[in-house]
Every structure is written in structure tokens, then in C-alpha cells.
Design a protein around this nucleic acid. Structure first.
Length: 858
RNA sequence: GCGAGAGUGGCGGAAUUGGUAGACGCGCUGGACUUAGGAUCCAGUGGCGUAAGCUGUGCGGGUUCGAGUCCCGCCUCUCGCACCA
């Protein structure tokens, strides 16, 4: 019988569905295991990245299920977002229609992969039954001041026609449009006060041992906590003071000028009416026109303009000039800095450029720096000088003593500062969850009353050519009644950032149809936290940070008991493939290349680098086509076998072929001997075996042990699969040899075959179900307990020992496993080859490593 | 510049805690079966060497009976952060 994946896979997928095999309930007496993969954006078709991600998850889910855990393994759709709007305009359709069509397509594709999802828990974030609870959470946050509105400088993406969060700006460009430089705009936006939780999120970074180190590091960097001080500098000729934030209060006596960020609101006031006003304001305008990434890039020359004003160094009472400078960041610290050119390279460069004095206040031991002649800043440790009462202190000690001094004089205080900013969640987009707020001219900003939720996104709108949200132009949406005075009012037309939806969807899976609140407490408490979360590294900051924040908020509100949503995180690598380029037609899809030539013009193609699969580079493989050709099992197996999950996977058509061949080999091996195998019961260690069968029996149990460890402890599915391949190879070799077969031999083979089927069933569930059934089993492999290895079966009577002379392998001897060190040594020293290499030289010592080797040192 | 990770055959990748380097797969070579095979099966496959043997995990040192693995110093690549005061 030929291996026919198409038939088998269809059969089992239908059977699983009929039997509701993947449905899961809360069961008090069973240990729960929540396995989650990052849900996809419904773009229309699944890609290899999805397939890899979800295959990894499926193996773990099925494995844990067989280990007896109550496994929650849900799937849903991150269904709001801009692509739906663009596609809708392009295809003359509606985002709603487009999204749900895509969901239907992708769901069918996922089902064909055989993933063990409980589809009863499916959710789509664009469903009012989902986002209404998000709106409720928003209202709670608004009540607590965790959601607030302010007018501020925001990052605007012209391509998206919307504001972006700081986290969504990458290298000065939009995270979605990497060629689109982000512009600064001043506008009203809604924010979530993530900074309130920065300290807590940071502190718990060290309590996530199940997270990859680099993700933790990235989050810590993003939060960017630093210890320093706020210092007040009196403005000369005014009652005002200027606050600066510094981490180097020890160098305060060396501050010889001050710099403002161009956005600083005080700037306008202090230059008003001065001869410098025109210069300063011109500089500000010029600087702000350059986008902030370029402006603050290290290759941009540091520039500034003197404002004409001075402030007093609060320590020395010395008059120091105030500049405005392009490199000072407005959204870090106070937007103004004290500059200490002797001990900061940037300040040094600036001071030399504008002939500002450089005063050394830290001397390295055994050196004598001179501010007039030094050629670069000295940023290391040393002893304070020119610092009044602090002279002679080590500068690190002075950090505290200067801060205390500032506090006692009321001119400053110790503080901590964070780099992270509040999360801008306003999007000037249509396809998103409406922000439940009403503006009344009389009553001001009014939350939509809870009973009026959801604020439903109207579906009967025409999108505007050229982008932009239609909501502000749609009276039926924006016209509202003030909940307080019942007068005419306006609805907020911004929608929420789609990262809000993905910040709590994992909670909602616990009770996806619950309609009395966002979450059914009992169920969410049963399932949360997620035991294993799997997804791409690209979400290291955005989604994972927002989710940690949101979980804390929901915890404060009493919706969930946990503070951390994901106990363990696996970040899988990208799926890569080499690019193929035609000199005439540019990048080519794989099917546009034949025999190394372009099918359009017959030019020889250029093989490019192996990079992440992407439509733009056309180095993509369509999972569905592969499933048509080889079946889902082959595709799943290749995804796991080609490399360990955290590493990038290099796509190889030949590798896929190899996986297919292996499955065929396994199929043939078992079906060819099905009759004989079916007649016997699997060997269970009951009676003693001849050596050659004992070897197979032992190998079976070694394989069970290796596969279990590889899957459970390390997620190294590639080595798990190779271990099973070895077992199959051994069994094949045995059956091809001319050993006489009897019932005992077949029962040992059956034991090996059953182990093979069960061990591989999480990886290739269809073929294994079929074989399992052919062996006479009536229940699914998924319902079978995971095989256990027997310690006795691993015992060996004889071992092959490596014998080294001076650390070089010279011989191998077979000895009884029971030999003592002394006996081993004696045996080794008798070995011909050892005798040859030792010759008549004196043996200095003999090292015996039990079960491994002997090293004879001469 | 700072931080993290990686460097092993022609290729993807193996090698719990220092103990046979190259498992498993791809590719390649030879053979078998075949009308044929790009199917299947068997054998071989790090390099040098007829062989004995030598050599070999980015480079240079070190520790050790023994180092891909540990230590020190470099080089290269990938990723993240990057004027953060």
C-alpha cells in the first residue's frame, strides 16, 4: 500500500473534528497547560513563518496532552489594522468583508495543517463582542487616570495617515513602512500611562527565567531606568528656574553652559525681544524640520545657538550661557541639560566649537588634566577638584554627597528617570476599536456610559480614496448626545492602536463567549498564565511589553490574578530562503525560474543571499502548494527538522524531499510487515532476549528517553526527529539482515514500531494516526499516554570502551559493564594496540572514566 | 561605541555535566534492481596519505591525562541599543 498523505490527512482531520478531540474544558483534577502561539493578522494566506510557529506550538501542545495535561491551545485573529483599509480601497471592497474572507481562507489553511486548536474558542478582535470589553477596560483606565489625553508632539506616518507610538518608530521610520520617515506633528492624542508601571515591569524582568535573555535585555533597555538628580538653575534676570536632569551631579562644578532642546517651551519666552530671538527661532524651526532620527543620529554635527540669556550654576553662582542645541532630546529628562565639557564628549565638542570654557573637576589618579589643552573629554573615574567642599572625594562617592547637598539647600533632589514614554494609543484610522469618549462643549470630555457599550464601528461607510479615516466625516457616527446634559456632542473619532487588542486576547481565550464582562474570573484564573508562549522576536518590545503592562492593569482591576502573562517564551527564528534575480526582470518567484534561467527571457539568474522570506524579495514558498504536493506531515516535519526553533530556518526544497522520503520509508517499513507485527503483542521486557534483539529493545528505550528530553527540556525537535530516524534505521537494518524471525522477534519489532509512532505523533499526526489504527488501536494517538522508558531496558552488559594513549584514541575494547576501574585498566593495558603505542616507555598513570574511556599516559 | 548571540565537512545541523568531533538529513561517489529512472535498496563520504599514520571545530596563547566545550587576548558575522545627559 502506498503512502497517500492527501487521503490520510483528510480522513483524520475530519475524524478529529467529528470527535471534538481538541476541545478543552476546565478540569479541577487535571494539571492545566496553556500553550499559545502569537495569533496572526488575517492577511489572506498563511506563510511559512506561521507554519513554523504553529507547528512548533502544535508539537508541544500534543506532547503535553499525551503527558496527561489539560491543554488549552486556542487560535484567533488580530483582525483590526491598516492593511484591511488599503486592500478595501484597492479591491473596491469593505475592510469587514475583506477581513472575514481572509479569516475563512486562513482558517481552512490552518486546518489542513492538522493543528490541534480548540476552534470553539476562536476570536476575532474586530468583533464587537471582543472590542466592547476593550472599551470597558478603557473606561476603567480613564476613571483611574491610566488613560488620558494630551496635546503633544507625536510621530506621524504619512503612509499610514496616522500617529504612531514611540515603540512603532524604527530608525526614524514607520515600523510598517520602513521607507517612510516619521514626521513630528503637534496634536491631541490618547495615552495609556505605562510609565506608572515601568518600575514594576522592570523589576520583574529578573523574575522571568523562562524568557530569552535578549528579550529581557531589550525590554530593560527600552524602559531605560537611570539614577540621577534634578537640579534647578536660576535664570538670570528672572524669578524662573530651569530644571535639568543629570546622572552626573558629581560634575556640577564643571558645568559651564546649558542647552535646551529645540522643542523646550521656555525657549520662546526667554529670547523674547532679544537681538538673538530671530537666530534662535530660526534655528529651532530649521532643526525641527529635520526628522528626529537624523537630527539625533551620531553623524549629525552638533550645533547650537546662544540664546543671549544666562543662568547661575547653583554651586558656584557663576553665570553660564544658555544655548539651544540640536542634540538635546526634549522627551528625555527635562528637555534641558547642564553641560560639563571636561567630562562629556558631546559637551566637549560643543564647547570647543563655540569657545566655551572647559573646567576640569575630576582628576584621574597620577595625571593632571588641563581644560585648555585637553583634546577629549575625560569620562572615567577620579578625584574631585575645583569642587569646593567636595574636593578630594572620589567622584562616585560624590554622586550621593552632592545630591544630599542639593536637597539640603533646596536646589535639587535625587531622582530616577525612565526612557520609556506613555503609550500613544490614538490612531486616526477607521478599522480599529473606537475610543469610547464623547466631547461636549458644556460638560467637556465625557466617557461613554457603560450601558451604551459597545461603541460600534459602523460598517456601512465608504472609505476615502487616498486614505484617511472616514469617521470624522460621518455624522451618523460622530454625532452623539452628551451623557450628562443630553445636549449635542461629538464622539471621539480616533480608534485604538491594534496593539491594545493583542494585549489581552490571551486572557479572553479562557472565556471567549462570556458576555457579562471582559473575562470570566474563574476560567481565566484556571488557565492563566500562559505556560508557553511562542512567536517571533520582532515583538520583543512592542507586543510583549504592552501585554505585560496590560496584565498589570487588569490585575489592579481584579480581572486577573496574575501580573505576568507569559511564564515561558520561545522566540522562533525567521524562515529564510535565497533570492533569485534576473538581470532583466528583477527578483523572481521560485516558479519563474527554470534550470537556473528566467522563464520570461532565458537570462541566467543570479542567486542572492539567504534572507527572510518576503513578498518583495519573492523568495517565498507557498505552504498550501507544498501541502498539495507532499502533505502537511512532510511540511511540519521539515520545519522542525531543519534547525532548532530559536534559530533561523534555511528553506531547502531538497530537505523537504528528504522529509517526505523518510515518512515514506517509515510507512513502508511498517506496512510491509503489518501482518506479522499485528499478530503479536509488543515486547515488554518480560523474558530475556538474544543480544541482537536486546539491542533493538534497548535502542527503543534510549530513543524514548532522548525524544522526551529533547521535546520537553529543550524544544530541540530536530534532534528528537533524528533519534527516531536512528531507531527506524536500526529496525530496517535488522529486518534486512538474515536473522530468523519468530514471535519474540516480532514483538520486539512491534515495541519499536509503536514507540516510533507515538514519539512522532506530535510531529506528524496524520500518518501516525493511520499507522496506529492499522496496528489495531481504536483511539487516537493523542489520547495515548506518552511512552515511558524503562530504566532496566537501558542497562547494557558489554560496553565499547575507548582507549587513548596520551589523549589520542588508539583502540576500542569491549568489556563487561560490571568491570571495576582496576579490571578496566588491566584490560586496556593488555590491548595489542596499546602495547604497540606504549612500547617500552614507562606508564605514568592511567585514567579511567566509567563507561566512557581509558587514557594511558606515558 | 555599548549589549547579546554565533563561527564545526560541499550544505542544514549533532555532540547533558570537559571524555570516540561530524549523530541525523541533504548533496556527492560507487554498486544492486530495472526497458528506463530524477523511484527504491546497499556501501562509501572532513582533509592529507598507497599505507602505517598525521591533521582537523574562526585565529593566537593557556589550564588539563584529555578542550568544539573552561580561561586570557584577537578576528569575522548576525541581531538589538545607540548623542538618553
Amino acid at each position: 500500500m502506498k503512502y497517500n498523505p492527501k487521503k490520510i490527512e483528510k480522513k483524520w482531520q475530519e475524524r478529529w473534528e467529528q470527535e471534538g478531540l481538541f476541545k478543552v474544558q476546565e478540569l479541577a483534577d487535571k494539571e492545566k497547560y496553556y500553550l499559545l502561539e502569537m495569533f496572526p493578522y488575517p492577511s489572506g494566506r498563511i506563510h511559512m513563518g506561521h507554519v513554523r510557529n504553529y507547528t512548533i506550538g502544535d508539537v508541544v501542545a500534543r506532547y503535553q496532552r499525551m503527558k496527561g495535561k489539560n491543554v488549552l491551545h486556542p487560535m484567533g485573529w488580530d483582525a483590526f489594522g491598516l492593511p484591511a483599509e488599503n486592500a478595501a480601497i484597492e479591491n473596491q471592497t469593505h475592510p469587514h468583508r475583506w477581513t472575514y474572507d481572509n479569516i475563512a481562507n486562513m482558517k481552512a489553511q490552518l486546518k489542513r495543517m492538522g493543528f490541534s486548536y480548540d476552534w470553539d474558542r476562536e476570536l476575532a478582535t474586530c468583533d464587537p463582542d471582543y472590542y466592547r470589553w476593550e472599551q470597558l477596560i478603557f473606561l476603567r483606565m480613564y476613571e483611574k487616570g491610566l488613560a488620558y489625553k494630551k496635546r503633544t508632539h507625536v510621530n506621524w506616518c504619512e503612509s499610514c495617515q496616522t500617529v504612531l507610538a514611540k515603540e512603532q518608530v524604527v530608525n526614524g521610520c514607520c515600523w510598517r513602512h520602513t521607507d517612510q520617515e516619521v514626521q513630528l506633528k503637534e496634536m491631541d492624542s490618547w495615552f495609556f500611562r505605562i510609565t506608572d508601571y515601568a518600575e514594576d515591569i522592570l523589576a520583574h524582568c529578573d523574575e522571568l527565567p523562562g524568557w530569552p535573555e535578549r528579550v529581557i535585555t531589550m525590554q530593560k533597555n527600552w524602559i531605560g531606568k537611570s539614577h540621577g538628580a534634578i537640579i534647578r538653575f536660576p535664570l538670570v534676570g528672572s524669578q524662573d528656574v530651569i530644571e535639568v536632569y543629570t546622572t552626573r551631579q558629581d560634575t556640577l562644578f564643571g558645568a559651564t553652559f546649558m542647552c535646551f532642546a529645540p522643542e523646550h517651551p521656555m525657549l520662546k519666552e526667554i529670547v523674547k525681544g532679544l537681538p538673538q530671538e530671530r537666530d534662535v527661532m530660526g534655528f529651532v524651526e530649521r532643526t525641527l524640520r529635520v526628522d528626529s532620527f537624523i537630527r539625533t543620529a551620531d553623524y549629525t554635527v552638533k550645533e547650537g545657538v546662544f540664546t543671549g540669556r544666562y543662568c547661575l550654576n547653583p554651586m558656584t553662582q557663576e553665570k553660564i550661557p544658555i544655548y539651544v542645541a540640536n542634540f538635546v532630546l526634549f522627551d528625555y529628562g527635562t528637555g534641558a541639560i547642564m553641560a560639563v565639557p571636561a567630562h562629556d564628549q558631546r559637551d566637549f565638542d560643543f564647547a570647543r566649537k563655540y569657545q566655551i570654557p572647559v573646567r576640569v573637576v575630576i582628576q584621574p589618579e597620577g595625571q593632571k588634566l588641563d581644560g585648555d589643552t585637553m583634546t577629549e573629554a575625560y569620562a572615567e573615574e577620579g578625584i574631585l577638584v575645583n569642587s569646593g567642599p567636595f574636593d578630594g572625594q572620589r567622584n562616585l562617592d560624590a554622586l550621593d554627597s552632592v545630591a544630599e547637598h542639593l536637597e539640603s539647600k533646596g536646589i535639587g533632589f535625587k531622582t530616577v528617570n525612565f526612557r520609556i514614554r506613555d503609550w500613544n494609543i490614538s490612531r486616526q484610522r477607521y478599522w480599529g476599536a473606537p475610543i469610547p469618549i464623547i466631547y461636549c462643549e458644556k460638560c467637556g470630555t465625557m466617557p461613554v456610559p457603560e450601558e451604551d457599550l459597545p461603541v460600534v464601528l459602523p460598517l456601512d461607510l465608504r472609505l476615502r480614496e487616498g486614505g484617511g479615516s472616514p469617521l470624522p466625516f460621518e455624522p451618523s457616527f460622530y454625532q452623539a448626545t452628551c451623557p450628562k446634559c443630553k445636549g449635542e456632542a461629538q464622539r471621539e473619532t480616533d480608534t485604538m492602536d491594534t496593539f491594545v487588542e493583542s494585549s489581552w486576547y490571551f486572557d479572553r481565550y479562557a472565556s471567549p463567549r462570556y458576555n457579562e464582562g471582559p473575562l470570566d474570573k474563574k476560567k481565566v484564573d484556571y488557565w492563566m498564565p500562559v505556560d508557553q508562549y511562542i512567536g517571533g522576536i520582532e515583538h520583543a518590545i512592542l507586543h510583549l511589553l504592552y501585554s505585560r503592562f496590560f496584565t498589570r492593569v487588569l490585575n489592579d482591576f481584579g480581572y486577573v490574578n496574575v501580573k505576568e502573562p507569559f511564564s515561558n517564551l520561545l522566540t522562533q527564528g525567521m524562515v529564510c530562503k535565497e533570492t533569485q534575480e534576473c538581470p532583466v526582470h528583477g527578483y523572481l518567484f521560485p516558479h519563474e525560474v527554470k534550470d537556473g534561467r528566467c522563464i520570461k527571457c532565458d537570462s541566467p539568474i543570479i542567486i542572492g543571499n539567504t534572507v527572510k522570506m518576503s513578498k518583495s524579495k519573492k523568495n517565498v514558498v507557498d505552504p498550501t502548494e507544498l501541502v498539495d504536493q507532499y502533505g502537511a506531515d512532510t511540511v511540519r516535519m521539515f520545519c522542525l527538522f531543519a534547525s532548532p526553533p530559536e534559530r533561523d530556518l534555511e528553506w531547502s526544497d531538497q530537505g523537504v524531499e528528504g522529509s517526505f522520503r523518510f515518512l515514506q520509508r517509515m510507512w513502508r517499513l511498517i506496512t510491509d510487515h503489518m501482518e506479522a507485527i499485528s499478530r503479536v503483542k509488543p515486547y515488554q521486557g518480560q523474558d530475556s532476549l538474544p543480544a541482537y534483539l536486546q539491542d533493538i529493545h534497548r535502542k527503543t528505550h534510549e530513543t524514548i528517553k532522548r525524544v522526551s528530553i529533547d521535546i520537553e527540556d529543550r524544544f530541540h525537535f530536530n534532534t528528537a526527529i533524528s533519534a527516531v530516524m536512528e531507531l527506524i534505521n536500526d529496525v530496517t537494518r535488522y529486518l534486512n539482515s538474515d536473522q530468523a524471525m519468530n514471535d519474540q522477534a516480532w514483538s520486539v519489532i512491534r515495541e519499536a514500531v509503536e514507540a516510533t509512532i507515538l514519539l512522532l505523533s506530535p510531529v506528524v499526526p496524520h500518518i501516525t494516526e493511520e499507522l496506529w489504527q492499522m496496528l489495531g488501536n481504536h483511539s487516537s494517538t493523542l489520547m495515548s499516554p506518552w511512552p515511558r522508558y524503562q530504566e532496566e531496558a537501558l542497562q547494557v552488559e558489554k560496553i565499547l570502551l575507548v582507549v587513548q594513549v596520551n589523549g589520542k584514541v588508539r583502540s576500542r575494547i569491549e568489556i563487561p559493564a560490571s568491570y571495576s576501574d582496576k579490571e578496566i585498566e588491566t584490560a586496556a593495558l593488555k590491548d595489542d594496540r596499546v602495547l604497540k603505542f606504549v612500547g617500552d616507555q614507562k606508564i605514568k598513570k592511567v585514567i579511567v572514566v566509567k563507561k566512557k574511556l581509558v587514557n594511558v599516559v606515558i
